[in-house]
Design a protein around this nucleic acid. Sequence first.
DNA 1: CATAAAAACAGAATTGACTCAATTTTAGAA
DNA 2: TTCTAAAATTGAGTCAATTCTGTTTTTATG
Lengths: 204, 204
Amino acid sequence: MSGLRARQKADRHRRIIEAAAELFREAGYEGAKIEAIAAQAEVSVGTIYNYYENKGDILGAIVSLEVNEVLNAGQGVVARPPANVGDALDTLIGIYIEHSLYYLSKEMWRQAMAISTQAPDSPFGQAYTALDRALTEQIGALIVRLQALGLVRQDIDGAALGELIFNNMNMMFIEFVKRDAARIAELRAAVRRQNRILVAAIAV
Amino acid sequence: MSGLRARQKADRHRRIIEAAAELFREAGYEGAKIEAIAAQAEVSVGTIYNYYENKGDILGAIVSLEVNEVLNAGQGVVARPPANVGDALDTLIGIYIEHSLYYLSKEMWRQAMAISTQAPDSPFGQAYTALDRALTEQIGALIVRLQALGLVRQDIDGAALGELIFNNMNMMFIEFVKRDAARIAELRAAVRRQNRILVAAIAV
DNA sequence: CATAAAAACAGAATTGACTCAATTTTAGAA
DNA sequence: TTCTAAAATTGAGTCAATTCTGTTTTTATG
C-alpha cells in the first residue's frame, strides 16, 4: 500500500518547503523564524527538525529544485549547441544565469552559498557541491561536444577547461548576488568578455 | 596628547584579537564562545561588541592580517617575475596558496568566506571583497608586467585575464578549504593544469 | 581641583535556533 | 476488532550570540 504515513510525510515535506519559500522571500532567510515557518506549515517546530537537520537544509531543498531545473534546461544546449564556440558557451551560461533568480532571491543565494562553505559536510553542503560538479561537467560536456563537431581544437583538455569556465562564472555569480544593485545583463557581459580570451584560444 | 583612552583602546583591540585567534584555532570558530574570548581578553562581553559588530568581524580582522601579508609577498613576484609565463603565474599563485594556512585553519577560512557572502555589506564583508579585488589586480598587474617584458601577447585583455585566473584559483581554493583531506600540493597541481590552457593561449 | 559631558564598560536580559523527553499516531499481528 | 511496537509529533527547555541599560572612567572646562 502507498501508506497513510508515507503520504502524510510527503505532504508535510511539501508544506514545510512551501511555507519556508514564501517566508524566505518575504522576510529574508534570517527574518523567517523557524516558529513562523512551523506555524505557516501547520506543524510543530520539532517536526521541522525531524524532516530537516537545520534551517539551512530547508533552504538547501529549495536551491536543489532550482539548480536541477537549470541542469535540465542545459541538456538541450549540449545536445544541439549553436555552431559557434562563443555563442555556444554564451547560450549555456545564459540559461544558468537567467534562470537563477526565478525561485531564489539574491539574499537566499547568499545564504545558500554561505552555508555550503560553512558546513560542507552537512546534507546540503554535500548536495551543493554535487550540484556545482554537475554544472562543471555539463560545461565540460559541451566542450567535448564542440570538439566532436570540429569546432574546438582536439588537443584541448576538456575537463580542465570546463572547470576553468565554471569556476570563473561561479565566482562572478557570487559577486553578482553579493551586490543587490548588480544587473544580470552586466554579469553576462563580463563573463562573455572573460570567456572571449578562452574562445580565441580554443576555437579551430 | 596620545591619550590614555586611545592607548587603552589599542591595547584592548589587540587583546581581543589575540584571544580570539588562539581560541578559534583551539576550539574552532563556533566552539570559541564570546564569553570565553571576553574572559581570555580580560574584558566584558559588552566591550567586545563595542569594538566589533559581531563575532564574524573579529575573525575578519584576523583574515585581513593574513591576506595583507600575502599581498605584500606577491609584490616581489610582480616586480621581478620568472622569465616564463607559466612559472610566473605558478610562483605568484604558489605564494598565495602556501601562505594561506599560516595564521588561519581551514575551518576559519570556511567561516570567513561564508560570512563574507552572507553579509557582504558588513565591515568585514566589504573588507573581504576589497581584498579579493586587490588579489585580482595583483594578478592583472603581473600579466601587464609580462606583456611589458614581451612574454605575453600585446592584444590580450590583461584585466579580464587577471579576473579569469583569480576567479578560477579562488574557487579552487574554496573547494580546497571545504575538504579537510585536500592537500596543498594537489591544489597547486590542479590550478597549474587549468592555467596551462591559458598559458598556451597568451604566451608569445 | 571640582565637575559636567562624553565615551566606554559591565553583565543581566532577550532572542531565536535547536534538543529532548513525554505523548500521540500508525502499522500490522493476533 | 484489539493490542503493541515502532515511528512521528509536540512544545517546553537549553544554549549562545547579541542587545540594552545603568554604572564607571576619562576628558575637557571653569
